[in-house]
């Protein structure tokens, strides 16, 4: 029982990280129509930058973190202007492939600039080794911070999007580009801000994942991205809350399945095999989409005639 609770807790943390990434994915998708497959690479680039700040000039953690988040904003702006803008008119498939090309370029640049990241390295944070105990359950400091950050971010984002003019402008742009333009909203600026915000979210997710794993290398975000996309799609790809819930579901499912299957066998097949878990998660995802084609939390499909 305790093991299950521990795993659920851990799954919740993993899920909130997927949810954070899914959030950024949906944000970009809703406003700019781009399925951003370079999202993981963006997160990895900023996290690598933080790593270099921490190990090269050996900056203290919090100033380095601040600098990295600023770098994330800058990177988002750069990507929007240099990459997303020229491709704005391209078909959706072209944009998707372009983001993949961007991911390749980012990864190569990171590797070329900071070759020490080609092999796994230790990611130093002041949170290591500390944990909170309550009742037989352990919650490491990083995990606790992750949950806290998620909750705060969600609250801030909700307030921003619902209460501020800029937030409303973003939502308007997401709803209908033409209408937003007609209302005088500077759509170009909105696009820029959306990419910067999404980049920031990616950076936060990447840094938290790195802090949790304590080991990173240049490809450390690769396996996470597809799961985040699945979370985003389960969430319906149209509401931010859906994205977070979808991501949380994937994280929980992953952990609980791992616990349930470990140690059991079906004949000669070891059910604890991670391949089986992966297969089950993707099979479940496909089946869920068949039952609810718009995702678990998605809105109804409207077709304009």
């Amino acid at each position: 029982m305790l093991a299950l609770l521990q795993v659920l807790l851990s799954g919740l943390v993993t899920g909130s990280l997927y949810g954070l990434l899914a959030l950024g994915i949906v944000l970009i998708y809703r406003t700019t129509g781009v399925l951003n497959f370079a999202y993981g690479a963006l997160a990895a680039t900023v996290t690598s930058f933080l790593y270099v700040l921490l190990t090269g000039p050996r900056l203290p953690f919090w100033p380095a973190l601040l600098l990295s988040l600023l770098f994330a904003l800058l990177l988002g702006a750069l990507v929007e202007r240099g990459f997303a803008r020229p491709l704005l008119a391209a078909p959706i498939l072209t944009k998707a492939i372009a983001t993949l090309a961007l991911a390749l370029v980012l990864q190569t640049v990171v590797q070329a600039l900071w070759p020490q990241l080609t092999s796994p390295v230790h990611f130093p944070t002041p949170f290591e080794g500390h944990a909170l105990h309550f009742g037989g359950l352990y919650l490491s400091l990083v995990d606790g911070l992750t949950l806290l950050t998620m909750v705060l971010l969600l609250i801030v984002l909700q307030l921003f999007l619902l209460r501020t003019r800029l937030g409303m402008a973003m939502r308007a742009t997401a709803d209908s580009l033409e209408a937003a333009r007609l209302m005088g909203i500077p759509v170009g600026l909105i696009f820029l801000l959306v990419w910067m915000l999404a980049s920031l979210l990616a950076a936060v997710a990447g840094i938290l994942i790195a802090a949790r794993q304590t080991v990173i290398d240049v490809q450390f975000m690769d396996p996470v991205l597809l799961l985040a996309f699945i979370g985003a799609v389960l969430g319906g790809l149209d509401r931010l809350e859906g994205a977070v819930l979808g991501g949380a579901l994937v994280g929980l499912a992953e952990n609980v399945l791992a616990l349930l299957l470990a140690g059991h066998s079906l004949g000669a097949l070891d059910l604890g095999n991670p391949g089986i878990r992966e297969a089950l998660i993707f099979a479940g995802f496909v089946l869920l989409l068949l039952l609810r084609p718009r995702g678990l939390f998605g809105g109804a499909a409207l077709r304009r005639v």
Partner: peptide, 21 residues
């Protein structure tokens, strides 16, 4: 019954599932 980006990601999931199997 599935369309757009949902179909894209769903079929991508199918590919990964097949790869796992």
């Amino acid at each position: 019954s599935v369309s757009g980006a949902h179909l894209a990601i769903a079929t991508l999931g199918l590919v990964v599932l097949t790869g796992s199997l």
